[in-house]
Design a protein around this nucleic acid. Structure first.
Length: 462
RNA sequence: GUGGAUGUAGCUCAGCAGGUUAGAGCAUCAGAUUGUGGUUCUGAGGGUCGUGGGUUCGAGUCCCAUCUUCCACCCCA
């Protein structure tokens, strides 16, 4: 049999215990915060019906959806003409009924519609699961990655947007990542497109302006013209692109410019309300209005949210926005939702690069009990279970190896305490408790060990 | 989907005018030290040089293809 070199698909990764520990640290902080804000968890399957996903993410998005081949004699169901013509596009739709989920928002919309009679609105849910995209891997870009979504559906109130920004602020503060939250509003963008006379080209306009800080004003203008805008339209757009100043000033100026566009004015009202809420309850991170922010899938209709790390160049690490009619596609119109999504894998990369993971995350066992032999082991066992009863993670070295080896094991596994139980200790009842970080060793009886460890553990936790 | 770089031991890399048995550091394992780790010393194991073809007397080294990873574009967490 030919030897097969083990490997995993492009853009996917294995996770070691250490990596899981670090990732869980991120998940825990996000989950705690979601819980604190009263969100409830759900999960949905890794695969959805292809038709549920198609057409929700734009043309590019459709291309990036991983499709799942039907089982059995799937080719017999394919249209022979398309097959012979080599039309992969058409054939794949005929032989794939399922696909891996591309994000968590669309499956959530599907969930809401499907379970609408069990749900009490407004519904606050969160969801932490992997998603898949058939993208070409790059820095901070994977084909399988975790999203951590929180959405409020069934409420138009801008208080929801406000709370989501507060969550973002709190999560990144706890993680120790310095970030800037950028906000914009699709209605303002629509108003701008309307104002320059190209309401139908809003997608082209937004994707072009989105690149402003990346390729510069001139290139953006070029691209706008390439995408079919007239010179006068591009000229009319300039004051908007170059808008400077405080949030209030920007909005006032826009209000003047967009006075003929009811949609634009609505967007400005919304942003004003949101920023007023944010002013009354200050955030630790910077929150700014960025009119060039056009990101977001094409189902966004109101607020657009994006978060960038200030110290690491990696693209956005959290994004979100309001979608007014995502559930309408599945037969439940008139329900508005707003949500955010933390990109756990990018957050991981940022934390790794900036050395932000606390030391303690890699500690699994808090205590190792040294094993010297049969008698010592049975004595140590009692201590072992006593510690576990007290909620202290610990392990007993399973065989009577050399002490050096056992100490090395504790060292390599970053176990902060070692308890040594030999003949002497068994006779006196005083056990040797060694702090592996300081090297200091204290003799104490079994009764005091638990409180000693708890105390020291808290101290070292910082 | 487009363009560019990369691939030698578990990891980081050396080796190249094509020429015997492919090297180093770190890591691993064992010993020095049969009750004390993170330092030191000694030794050992570990590679079909990403994969498949081709050129050549001879290829880790040159050519082609393919895959991986990385970088940029597109797009995005």
């Amino acid at each position: 049999m030919a030897k097969e070199k083990p490997s995993i698909p492009k853009g996917t990764r294995d996770f070691s215990p250490e990596e899981i520990a670090k990732r869980n640290y991120i998940f825990d902080i996000i989950r705690e915060t979601y819980n604190l804000y009263g969100f409830k968890p759900i999960e949905t399957p890794a695969m959805e019906n292809l038709s549920t996903l198609m057409g929700k993410y734009g043309e590019e998005g459709d291309r990036l959806i991983f499709r799942i081949l039907n089982s059995g004699d799937f080719l017999s169901k394919a249209n022979k003409t398309d097959l012979n013509a080599g039309d992969s596009q058409k054939v794949s739709a005929q032989i794939c009924e399922k696909a891996l989920r591309y994000d968590l928002t669309v499956p959530f919309a599907r969930y809401v519609v499907q379970h609408q009679n069990e749900i009490t609105f407004p519904f606050r849910r969160y969801q932490i699961q992997p998603v898949w995209r058939a993208d070409r891997p790059q820095k901070g870009r994977y084909r399988e990655f975790f999203q951590c979504d929180a959405d409020v559906i069934g409420s138009d109130s801008l208080f929801n947007e406000f709370e989501l920004v507060k969550i973002i602020d709190q999560v990144f503060d706890k993680l120790g990542i310095s970030v800037t939250v950028k906000l914009n509003n699709r209605k303002i963008l629509a108003g701008i497109a309307d104002y320059i006379g190209f309401a139908d080209k809003i997608t082209d306009i937004t994707t072009a302006i989105d690149k402003l800080d990346k390729i510069g004003l001139e290139k953006v203008n070029e691209e706008l013209k390439d995408r079919g805008l007239t010179d006068t339209a591009v000229d009319a757009l300039q004051p908007v692109l170059l808008l400077q100043g405080e949030v209030k000033e920007k909005l006032a100026s826009l209000r003047n410019t967009l006075q003929t566009s009811p949609t634009g004015l609505k967007g400005i009202d919304e942003m004003e309300e949101l920023f007023t809420l944010l002013e009354d309850s200050s955030t630790k991170c910077k929150v700014e209005l960025d009119l060039t922010l056009a990101r977001g899938l094409n189902y966004y209709t109101g607020a657009i949210i994006e978060v960038k790390a200030n110290d690491v160049a990696i693209g956005s690490i959290c994004g979100g926005g309001r979608y007014d009619d995502l559930t309408g596609i599945f037969g439940l119109p008139g329900v508005s939702g707003v949500g955010i999504s933390f990109g756990a894998d990018r957050i991981y990369d940022v934390m790794q690069e900036s050395g932000l993971f606390p030391e303690g995350v890699l500690t699994f066992s808090k205590v190792l009990l040294v094993n010297f032999g049969k008698e010592e082991q049975s004595y140590a066992q009692k201590i072992l279970f006593k510690l576990r009863d007290a909620g202290i993670s610990c392990e007993l070295y399973p065989e009577a190896s050399k002490m050096k080896k056992q100490m090395q094991y504790a060292d390599k596994n970053l176990i902060p305490f070692v308890i040594i139980i030999g003949k002497n200790e068994m006779e006196t009842g005083k056990l040797a408790v060694k702090n592996m970080k300081t090297g200091e060793q204290v003799m104490m009886d079994a009764e005091t060990i638990v409180s000693y460890l708890n105390q020291n553990h808290k101290l070292s936790r910082n």
